[in-house]
Amino acid sequence: MGNETYRPFDPWRPSPVKENGRKEIFNSHYFNIDHVNLESAASGTFDRYVLHGNNGDTVGVLAVTDDGMVPLVEQYRIPTHRWTLEIPGGHPATPTERPSEVAERKLREEAGYEAKELVQFTRFIDEPSFSSQYTSLFLATSLSQVERAVIGPESPRSDVRLFTPEEAVRLIINGTIVDAKTIIAILRLNNGLLKSIKG
């Protein structure tokens, strides 16, 4: 066998399953859940549950200070009962809030910075096996410090810590940074993201 594939990858080729019905069974501030009934030639009928984010993409902001430091926010995460280090990020507050506006707001509220330059550099599906939710990642540069907001009841005493990109990569390797959007953003930064965007 050679190294050639049988065909180019086509994400939009015909579905192997037929959707027979869908019903929303849960709705919250951040997301809703659909119960979906499906059918396939191999398995017959079966059920799945699909999570949808409300109001559009979640957002993450990779900020880089003028001296090359990356601010990471301490967050206490209830589902895993642990503190994390994350780039600023979050959900739209309304259906009309654009991803770039969410990025500006979260950078200001969580990290205490405003950016003169804000560029989206990637978009990914959070967990495609059970969710349709996308996350958009932005690079923020030419920063100025502003007053932070209170993040929320989960992290009443959160702090912002500054790391070099190399230090942040080491925190990924040793398992300190476990948040997916933060890992993706930092590895892109370490792979020449600033040069590729700024030419």
Results as ranks from 00 to 15, higher is better:
residue 2 G to S: 15
residue 4 E to T: 13
residue 4 E to W: 12
residue 5 T to E: 12
residue 7 R to W: 06
residue 7 R to D: 11
residue 8 P to C: 05
residue 8 P to D: 10
residue 11 P to G: 08
residue 13 R to L: 08
residue 15 S to C: 05
residue 17 V to N: 00
residue 18 K to D: 03
residue 19 E to C: 11
residue 21 G to N: 08
residue 22 R to V: 09
residue 23 K to D: 01
residue 24 E to D: 05
residue 25 I to L: 07
residue 25 I to P: 13
residue 28 S to D: 11
residue 35 H to F: 10
residue 37 N to D: 04
residue 40 S to Y: 07
residue 42 A to P: 00
residue 44 G to E: 06
residue 44 G to C: 06
residue 45 T to H: 02
residue 46 F to Y: 15
residue 48 R to G: 02
residue 53 G to Q: 06
residue 53 G to D: 06
residue 53 G to S: 11
residue 54 N to M: 00
residue 54 N to T: 03
residue 55 N to E: 09
residue 57 D to A: 13
residue 58 T to W: 03
residue 61 V to I: 12
residue 66 D to N: 11
residue 66 D to Y: 00
residue 68 G to C: 09
residue 70 V to Y: 03
residue 70 V to M: 04
residue 72 L to I: 05
residue 73 V to Q: 08
residue 74 E to G: 04
residue 74 E to S: 11
residue 74 E to M: 06
residue 75 Q to V: 15
residue 79 P to L: 01
residue 85 L to I: 09
residue 85 L to R: 09
residue 89 G to K: 02
residue 93 A to T: 03
residue 96 T to K: 10
residue 98 R to G: 00
residue 101 E to M: 12
residue 105 R to E: 00
residue 106 K to D: 10
residue 106 K to V: 14
residue 109 E to M: 02
residue 110 E to T: 10
residue 112 G to N: 01
residue 113 Y to F: 15
residue 114 E to K: 11
residue 117 E to L: 04
residue 117 E to C: 00
residue 118 L to T: 07
residue 120 Q to C: 11
residue 121 F to A: 07
residue 123 R to S: 11
residue 127 E to S: 13
residue 129 S to R: 14
residue 131 S to V: 09
residue 136 S to H: 05
residue 136 S to L: 10
residue 139 L to C: 13
residue 140 A to K: 08
residue 141 T to F: 06
residue 141 T to C: 06
residue 143 L to W: 08
residue 145 Q to K: 15
residue 147 E to Q: 14
residue 153 P to E: 12
residue 154 E to I: 00
residue 154 E to Q: 13
residue 154 E to C: 04
residue 155 S to Q: 04
residue 157 R to T: 12
residue 160 V to C: 02
residue 160 V to N: 02
residue 161 R to P: 02
residue 164 T to Q: 07
residue 166 E to N: 12
residue 170 R to T: 02
residue 172 I to N: 07
residue 173 I to E: 13
residue 173 I to D: 14
residue 175 G to I: 03
residue 176 T to D: 06
residue 176 T to F: 09
residue 178 V to T: 15
residue 178 V to D: 15
residue 179 D to T: 05
residue 182 T to H: 09
residue 183 I to N: 01
residue 186 I to P: 05
residue 188 R to Y: 15
residue 192 G to C: 01
residue 192 G to Q: 06
residue 194 L to D: 04
